[in-house]
Design a protein around this nucleic acid. Structure first.
Lengths: 239, 239
DNA sequence: CGCGGTGTTGAGACCTGTCAAGACGTGTGG
DNA sequence: CCACACGTCTTGACAGGTCTCAACACCGCG
């Protein structure tokens, strides 16, 4: 059930049987949230963190004028608001893009778990730092990549991240976002998302139909994106 | 000497005398680095973190084509690469914008300090999460704010962050970046930075001369920026 | 059957980038 | 002390990427 989470952790570091036991005991309950809901509203004091078991979520920030920017996408295995453990409340909303199944992890349990296992503490600290690295890469996209490069880069990133948890194979994966939502990730309007998607198709790099993305030419897509997966920290390190 | 650092921490949480003693014992040596150097190159294995005592630094990512995006600016008191403690190597460069004085903190000492004090661990974990929150806000700027709003927002953020460590008073502070460097932060060309600066001046909001920024109308500047300092997590929390 | 969400297309506007040139200040070497 | 180079700031003309506004097709669903 939280296998995707363990796979994600093990792609970064070793997880001892003892740590695995602790991790499994973190969950207090499992809940479901339908699509297009605000699961966590910014500024609200939180007592729990949430581990995404199934579905897609996002970290979103809104401008007073209503424009929305997504700072990161979350898929199965992600601890979507692990940072709320230390931040207490979030500076952004956490929203569901699809129906989602989530494991609730009380901060109390995180506190005692981290006080028991220094290694687990560093591992979870690492995971929040990897989230930050992903957000940095998105900043680079938003600041310096063209619409085409940005979109190509996102598709490359998701291909790798979904691959880690077995949700991408043969360079194809389910991609549930609408063009409007894709625009909120890329800092583009939905109209321009539409045209950029057509350009990627015209170049023979991808197909996106029936909410499924297929990458025809990964090498070329990476080149368009300027994609280097180092920022995902997938080399397993020992500690 | 590391007073700015303690001020910054205490703006977020209480720091016990015992924790303060531990923090002061983290530093192994103090070094100086001239302006415009790459202090840390991405991808290099690191054994130390660095605490900025004096000067300005930045987290920068470069595209293969040479364009540079700065993901965050660092000022005195910032632990510029605390995240390297868990990441081991960085996905970005850390560069000096001015001459800098830095305290070296061996990861070994961080390891033993965090294993001794769970509270200090959470405090430093919190600080990396606040860095991530700043980077998220920059993503919002890059994705959704106009050039004018982006620049206004950066000036508001620095006014608050420098205020915490006593480097901004009466809404004025030393601002050492060139217009090219400012553009690298804002995702703009230096030409457009120049024109946007002129617009802010024309509106009577700021002055920027001799590397010193003066905010004439903070209320109006905040309104142009859509600035809300909540993401800096300055309310002191108890734990 | 109508409706709302989604995807698509076109025309035109606007913001920001590109290229180029010149002004200004500062440090350096002759 | 001057000449010069260099980095920085400034300005102008123009190009181009992305946005805005509008309309329409498509489709699942109540």
């Amino acid at each position: 059930m939280i296998d995707a989470h363990l796979q994600k952790l093990r792609a970064r570091d070793t997880v001892s049987p003892e740590d695995e036991r602790i991790i499994r005991s973190l969950v207090s309950e499992v809940i479901e949230i339908p699509a297009d809901k605000t699961a966590i509203r910014h500024g609200i004091e939180l007592q729990n963190s949430m581990l995404l078991l199934d579905g897609w979520m996002a970290r979103a920030k809104d401008l007073p004028t209503g424009e929305r920017q997504v700072a990161e996408l979350h898929v199965a295995g992600d601890f979507v608001d692990l940072h709320s453990f230390t931040l207490k409340s979030l500076d952004h909303d956490v929203i569901t893009m699809t129906n989602c199944r989530l494991a609730i992890v009380p901060h109390e349990r995180l506190k005692s778990a981290t006080e028991r296992s220094p290694h687990l503490t560093r591992l979870y600290w690492l995971m929040t730092n990897i989230d930050a690295a992903i957000q940095r890469e998105w900043s680079l996209s938003l600041g310096r990549r063209s619409a085409l490069g940005r979109m190509a880069h996102l598709f490359c990133e998701l291909n790798v991240r979904l691959g880690v948890i077995g949700l991408s194979s043969d360079n194809a994966y389910d991609f549930p976002l609408t063009q409007v939502e894709l625009g909120e990730c890329l800092g583009l309007t939905s109209v321009h998302v539409n045209r950029t998607l057509q350009e990627l198709r015209r170049l023979g790099l991808i197909a996106l139909e029936n909410r499924r993305l297929t990458i025809f030419n990964l090498v070329a897509l990476k080149r368009v994106a300027g994609f280097d997966p180092a920022y995902l920290y997938l080399g397993r390190r020992v500690d």
